[in-house]
Nucleic acid binder design. Structure first.
Lengths: 245, 245, 245, 245
DNA sequence: GATGAATGAGTGTTCATTCAT
DNA sequence: AATGAATGAACACTCATTCAT
């Protein structure tokens, strides 16, 4: 059966009222679905719940999206696409800004995006739990490369050339680190808060942690590399010794 | 309905063969359950699957554990208890070791534990997805405080006194950061690998990231704090400026 | 999960064919459920049995009624509501009829209702066995006061005023007695028949017992009260002596 | 498999300690079983519950009684046998006592027995709900004829001869009526209490009802029979008219 | 475009009962 | 005499999905 995607014409003026109605119905379902999948994960989400919360007949979900899995994938694509769109909007004059400052601003952007879109965190965690099973099925995702990674690359290159940055920083590794520092203390706040009886989601805790993340990144970028050694385990000791001399 | 805990006597010699049998059946179920819950999450896990893989009658699961939820909670308690037990075994002479080195060794311990126990990562992520719903129900968990956090506190204090560490480092914030850097690139490897078409789980990538984490932590600990400002957003710029002068 | 009540419009002409279909399906389930619960009691009843006998998918029971318990409560409410409805239809000119005759007619009504609705007997007995556990959960039941009790009250008052009735008859106590005499020999016929090797359910036995009940009630209402004494046990003897003088 | 009934020798002196132990274990199970079956009915009762409450291994129930059904039947036989035993103990000089007084004393006995053995009420109700399915399977029950019925027969005969009783009273019908009046307001107290918002089980209510029952029976026995007519419905009117003249 | 009705295949759980010692 | 371990069959209930209009 051919799935109807009901992509309404971009110009609202040419839409029939039916098309508009359809568009809002579709959107209503979609909005609810994002929340449901983010809250419960794929296997925990209930399509009947989505339908009832969107106040549509359950049939409509199959009409517009084809099924639970397809809807989930579309949700994934949407929230990741949204991240990319936001990244594209980042106004950062990478050719002029002081590189370390630029990188910290990118960290702020990432952290801000996660703060503003908690559903993205949950969906990514959920997706990782099942080894990106559905993400792999998406044809759209691999095409979405991160604009921020590009900005990061530029800033690192400029920083290295101007010697305002340590040498040998890999853009992807740095990117992953920035995301780690912006992601983990939000995504894993519930268990850790429980275990240490602290409210990690309190604004003050989040703010303090953000400042520590800044310090980490700044210190890292502006420090000189320690001597590389083969064995990761023994290295730190001598490395630290050397650095603290 | 009294759940049979089958607390076999500690000395195997005094166990009857029946107790041994029951103990191994219970353990067999438990081992399979850890894997199933780690792989599929709570709602994705199937108790029938656990039973069949453990080669026991489904009924036994209810006999020994009481139900899916109780089994899940026991799994959670086990993997977290296991982490604690391992932490207790850490041999680190916190009164003599150079503080920064000590902290990096603790990072290595954490990273190593996650590498050796991937199920812990998944279970924690899964648990965070449902807002620690089940962890909250555990009566055991809040009692398990992290021994590593204590070690960290001691090292920080010594480091501050001997001026080999920056001032004002908060143990819990540092702990969370260490865990972030050891956790995220493993737990979220699937989606990121897919999005950036890299195999983050390859040993070389993991090793490289671990080294970068070392550098970050070392640099942070040995650097001088930037001036605190009210607005987190604007701060870095001037902070960086000041530091790079 | 909103339970579909399928309140079809009262006028059949305005119903769509679908509403009619749903209504009949719901009714078919309901009718079978009354029988199943009456026959087996709550814990003995099987929802799969209800589904298969109503020739519907099990799912429909949950769709229309929400669950076994909710269905059971609705059945209880229905049979009791039905009793009330029938009571309301009783045409008895309580202001003119000779009071004793009126009360005996009410007995006949009660007896006739139990004879015509054996399921009511079983459901009430079943409900009493579990201490009205489900009846307590009904929000509808306490609102249903018995119209017959009102009629009884009026007749008693008139009878007392006209001295055609003994004094001091309590309406509720009398009502319970009428029900006892109409209920017990039907509800407990099986065990007693077995124990005394008689077929109490044979029409002739039932008719004879009904006549005896009439005689009891008539004799009671038209007799003069015996002297009340404190101790219930010793009272009858002297009372009887006094009365038979 | 041959069921071991473990009927310990009647003389305690000749019992081995094992037999005594077995007897108490068996009795413990039995006592708990009476309560469980009375409380939940046959299908609601749980043999695991019986075992755990009797603090014996579940296997013992099968060892001593053969199974749930056999245990249930034995319980039935016991409580009914107990009723018979108590009836045999009734000390009533049926040859001398005033007949009406004697009958009222028998009512008191019945009422007292039900009050003292609520489990009998529940078991009988439960048994009636499944049409005496298990009672039919008992080989013991039909042999137990009610001694009280015999006493009743004697008293009626004497009363008729001495004209202190109305003519034509059938012993079994009277017996059933006595039981109705002693049984119903206890067995069905829960639903009626709920429906009329009264506490029928309160001692004062029970006492008042008992007194009314006495009045009913006394008035009936000492009254003259109304004229029999064919139609039960129309009869009372003229009968009452005749009696109230 | 939209919908209420319906369903087959699970899904966690419970039950009375038997096996092996 | 007594028991802990184990089981197959059933049970209430849920799920994503399709039918018929």
């Amino acid at each position: 059966m051919p799935r109807k995607t009901v992509t309404a014409s971009p110009d609202p003026a040419t839409q029939t009222s039916r098309q508009r109605l359809a568009a809002t119905t579709r959107q209503r379902i979609f909005k609810v679905a994002i929340k449901e999948f983010a809250d419960k994960g794929f296997s925990g989400a209930r399509v009947e719940m989505i339908a009832s919360r969107a106040k549509v007949n359950i049939r409509m979900i199959y009409h517009y999206f084809g099924g639970k899995e397809a809807l989930y994938i579309e949700v994934l694509e949407y929230v990741l696409g949204n991240l990319r769109d936001e990244e594209l909007k980042v106004e950062l004059d990478v050719e002029r800004i002081e590189p370390v400052s630029g990188i910290l601003l990118l960290y702020d952007f990432i952290e801000g995006h996660f703060a503003a879109h908690p559903e993205l965190l949950n969906l990514l965690s959920s997706e990782n739990l099942n080894r990106a099973r559905f993400l792999k099925r998406s044809k759209l995702i691999p095409k979405i490369s991160s604009p921020v990674l590009g900005l990061l690359r530029t800033l690192i290159e400029r920083g290295e050339r101007s010697a305002s940055l340590r040498l040998g920083v890999d853009p992807l590794h740095l990117y992953v680190t920035l995301v780690s520092l912006a992601y983990f203390h939000k995504s894993n706040a519930f268990t850790i808060s429980r275990m240490f009886e602290t409210d990690m989601l309190a604004p003050s805790w989040q703010q303090a942690h953000k400042e520590q993340a800044h310090e980490l990144v700044r210190a890292f970028l502006t420090s000189r590399p320690a001597l590389r050694t083969k064995t990761g385990g023994a290295a730190p000791l001598s490395a630290v010794d050397a650095a603290t001399q």
